[in-house]
Amino acid sequence: MRFTLYPSVDIVNAHALTSRTAIAATLGHDMKAERLGSPIDLALAFQDAGARWIHVVDLDAAAGKGSNRHLVFELLKQVRANVQVCGGIRTENDVAQLIDAGCGRINIGTAALENPHWCESLFKRYGEKIAIALDVRESDSGYRLTSRGWNDESGDVWPKLALLDQLGCPRYVVTDVNRGGNMNHPNLRLLEAMTKRTSRPIVSGGGVSSIDDIFALKAIEVEGTVLGQALHCGSLSYGEIEAQLRQTATV
């Protein structure tokens, strides 16, 4: 199985921000925004570096604070790589418009937690073009789901995972919200537990800080990972990671 990297374009107020400050803005924390420029230019830069997939997050829409959908549509026009879009996608019309605009995959988060049975028709109609985003916070009471830009809690993860599996979810994007933007290593324990409870492919999010983290994820048979802060701050290079993955694949 080829491990897939998803460099992230995190959009807040029409700007691409580093994952760390984009998440802080979404959660209402007082932190100076670290701008990376135009979301479209950043996506094109990742494409030029060889990215086959790009992960685009409208964080304003996710938190219900606005929308950057016009920018997402323009990005879809200009970028040839596959684009995975998430944030504020809550209606069938949202899904249809993005698919018609050329979106390669749509991640549905809050809407799937609030009305999982609604997603069943999407799975049947769009198949692999739909994934469910499970944003998880680890606490003393276990793994708890979060929604609406990580601002609300939405119950225990395992019953919802079982239901979504039953309804036919093709893929999950699993993020430990305590690690998003923090470069404090992926939550391998959570991800391993996920791989044991579902046979569906899993893409991880949050915490990657080194190539060792990438290989640790690959070893537990996670399908791929979203790369945000480590790329945004320059501690990792997309091209160098891909080169090392190719090198190990030929050994």
Rank of each mutant, 00 (worst) to 15 (best):
F3K: 06
Y6C: 09
S8P: 02
S8V: 09
A16F: 02
L17E: 09
T18F: 06
R20A: 13
T21K: 11
A22E: 05
I23P: 05
A24L: 13
G28S: 15
H29C: 11
D30H: 15
M31W: 01
K32G: 01
G37M: 09
G37V: 07
P39M: 09
F46L: 03
W53Q: 01
H55T: 03
H55V: 06
H55L: 08
V57S: 09
L59G: 00
D60F: 03
A61Y: 02
K65Q: 14
H70P: 00
L71Y: 11
F73M: 15
F73D: 05
L75P: 05
L76E: 07
Q78H: 14
V79A: 09
A81T: 13
Q84I: 02
Q84S: 03
C86Y: 05
G88T: 11
I89Y: 08
R90S: 08
N93M: 04
A96Q: 06
L98E: 03
I99M: 08
A101F: 11
A101P: 11
C103I: 01
C103N: 04
G104N: 15
I106M: 08
I106N: 07
N107F: 07
N107D: 12
I108D: 01
A112N: 02
P116Y: 00
C119L: 14
C119A: 13
C119S: 07
C119P: 05
E120Y: 02
E128I: 10
A131T: 00
I132Y: 04
V136E: 04
R137G: 11
E138L: 04
Y143D: 08
R144P: 06
T146E: 10
R148T: 02
N151I: 13
E153T: 12
G155C: 12
W158A: 06
W158M: 02
L161K: 04
A162N: 04
A162K: 10
A162M: 01
L163E: 10
L164F: 14
Q166L: 13
P170G: 13
V177C: 03
N178S: 03
R179G: 02
R179N: 04
M183N: 07
M183F: 04
H185M: 06
H185E: 08
H185I: 06
N187P: 07
R189K: 11
L190P: 06
L191G: 08
L191P: 08
A193Q: 15
K196D: 10
K196R: 15
P201G: 01
P201D: 05
P201E: 05
I202R: 12
I202A: 10
G206S: 09
G206N: 07
G207Q: 08
V208R: 14
V208G: 10
V208Y: 11
S209W: 06
S210D: 09
S210T: 14
S210N: 11
S210A: 09
I211G: 02
D212A: 15
D212N: 14
F215L: 11
I220L: 15
V222F: 15
V222W: 14
E223P: 10
G224A: 15
G224Q: 15
T225L: 08
V226G: 12
V226Q: 13
A230F: 05
L231F: 15
H232P: 11
H232T: 10
Y238T: 10
Y238N: 10
Y238I: 08
I241V: 14
I241R: 03
I241M: 13
A249I: 12
T250Q: 13
V251P: 00
V251F: 02
